[in-house]
Each structure stands twice: as structure tokens, then as C-alpha cells.
Nucleic acid binder design. Structure first.
Lengths: 160, 160
DNA sequence: GTTGAAAGATGTGCGCC
DNA sequence: GGCGCACATCTTTCAAC
């Protein structure tokens, strides 16, 4: 496997493959080959290479949050009290362990961490704030922004 | 197809299927069947039903942003000037048309919209701010939070 | 990158509990 | 109503070119 710090060269065909797989991870290789104008064998070789290089990180199913009763999304800005390396790592570890925390970002500016949290309803969110966030030593302040409507959601990175 | 406003009943087997597919969308049906303790035929029927009901919204490949040179992520808080229905819809439409805007949320509170933007570097981001956001009439204010490190990123919704 | 052939996965019909 | 079996179909995968 190529070391992950080396940026692989992606030609136009690779980028077309990636764009299609970002839209539909389950497209049969035969159909993918058709769309990019190659035969199945080299197409599959390219896909396998992109997987091994880590360009394709994983294949996932996206669910409808409403239909699985996880409809409340909240963005939380968190500032920590003592800004030590250990304090930051502890916080990030705790967020990784919480399934309702979908995303956790270390940020520049006033905010230390940004969280995207997904729960069933406001009761569940209040519970998260009180029992999880507030229970972490070193959390100085949190600011929750309730999401009313998802106008756009995509995981597709634009490729030049 | 079941109307999408009807919440389908998900039993424990359905939830196990969904949890696995959220992790690995390309698992062979035979293997999925093994993991949940059914034979392939009823397993596949359940997966198809979950797809038709819309519980499974789509299957996608997730890429490594670094390896495709889309490494700068920014969260942008946007407030609009004139808070008319048309103004909001126009803004959301423009965000949907921009490939570097991965997510766009209508929010409660001081912020009207939250954006997650993914670009190659600060130059590209400045270009987005000036040429795209600032060019939209009705945008009163924007506040950008640069993401330094992605501590956690998952698309998996926790299922009870 | 192409062809062709073997191995394996998907998907359907039907009987059963 | 959902499960399991068996069979036909299509896809993946690996040669050799």
C-alpha cells in the first residue's frame, strides 16, 4: 500500500470514477466501466488501486434521519477551560466514544471544538448536554445551535 | 413504495442490518446474512424493503479529503438581511448549486444558516467568500470558523 | 487495455412454519 | 407474514495476451 502521506496522482479517469462512486457506491463494475468508457477489468484495477491508496476511505449506507427517529441535529461550539494538550486529547477521545456525536472538529478562533450531534428529540439533547458534555472536566462553555432544516447534505467532495 | 412520511417499523434485525450497512455498504449479502443470523434470501428482502421505504437513502463512497487535495474545511455562520421566505429559498438554492458547499442548514438563534464548506486551500476559500457568498444579495454577515483537525467524522446514525 | 473463462454473488419462485 | 431451499442470472476476478 502506498504511504498515506503521499498524494497519489489522479488522472481524469480516476476522478470520474471517484465522482461516480461518491454518488453510488454500489454501481456494478460493468456499469461503471461503461460510464467511463473502459472495459470492466482495468476499471476494477483502478478502483482497487484507489482503495489501497486510501483515496477511497470506505463505502457506507446513508440513512434518512427522520425514518430512523434521529431527527434532531445540533451544532455545538465548545470552549475548554485549561488548554493543555492532555485536556484536548481527553475531550476528543470522549467525543469519539459517543455515538450521538457524528463529527468533532478542532477549530481556530474563539471556539475550541465544533460538534455535530444527532439525537431523537430535545429531551435526548438536554440529556446529552447535562450528562455528557457538562460532566467532562475542563468544558468551560457550550453554545448550541439547533438545526431546523437540512437544506443540503452531501458527502461528495468536488474533484476539480 | 411506502409513503415517505410514514415511519416504518424497524425490528431488531432491521436495525442490525442498518448498523452494518452504515459501516460497510459493500458487504456481500451472504456475509451480511451470516452476521445477522439469517439466510441470504430473507436478508436481501429486508435490505430491499429498507431501500424502498427510503430508510436507506443511498450508498456512497467516502474519500480522504487530504488525498484528493480538498483539505480545508470551514464552518460558516451566515445571517441574512431581509428575512423573507423568498430570500431564504434563494439562498438555499444557491448553496445547493455550489459543489464546495457540502452541507447547508437553516438554524434557530442568531445564525440563519450554517454551511460546511470544503476547498483546496485558503486562496480557494477567500475566493468562495468574496465571489460566491458576498455576491449573494441579502447576505448581511458571515463568520468563518477554520477547522484545524477532524477528530471524528462518521455518517453512522446511532440506532437505539 | 482487452478477451475469455471460472468462481462467486444476487435475486426469484415456491414450499414451509 | 417471514423464513429457507434451489436454481437461473449476472458480476467479479484472474488468467494470458
Amino acid at each position: 500500500m502506498m504511504p498515506r502521506h503521499t498524494t497519489p496522482d489522479l488522472d481524469a479517469t480516476d476522478r470520474r470514477i471517484l465522482t461516480i462512486l461518491q454518488r453510488d457506491a454500489r454501481i456494478p463494475n460493468t456499469e461503471l466501466a461503461d460510464e467511463i468508457g473502459l472495459t470492466p477489468a482495468p476499471t476494477l484495477r483502478r478502483v482497487r488501486r484507489l482503495e489501497e491508496e486510501g483515496v477511497i476511505h470506505r463505502y457506507v449506507a446513508l440513512l434518512d434521519p427522520k425514518l430512523v427517529n434521529r431527527d434532531l441535529m445540533v451544532m455545538v461550539r465548545v470552549t475548554l477551560d485549561k488548554q493543555t494538550k492532555q485536556g484536548f486529547e481527553d475531550f476528543a477521545d470522549k467525543m469519539r466514544a459517543r455515538p450521538e456525536v457524528l463529527e468533532c472538529y478542532l477549530c481556530l478562533g474563539d471556539t475550541d471544538y465544533l460538534l455535530k450531534v444527532c439525537v431523537a428529540d430535545l429531551d435526548a439533547y438536554q440529556n446529552f448536554l447535562v450528562e455528557v458534555l457538562a460532566a467532562i472536566p475542563g468544558v468551560r462553555n457550550t453554545d448550541s445551535t439547533i438545526i431546523v432544516k437540512q437544506e443540503k447534505y452531501t458527502t461528495s467532495l468536488p474533484l476539480d
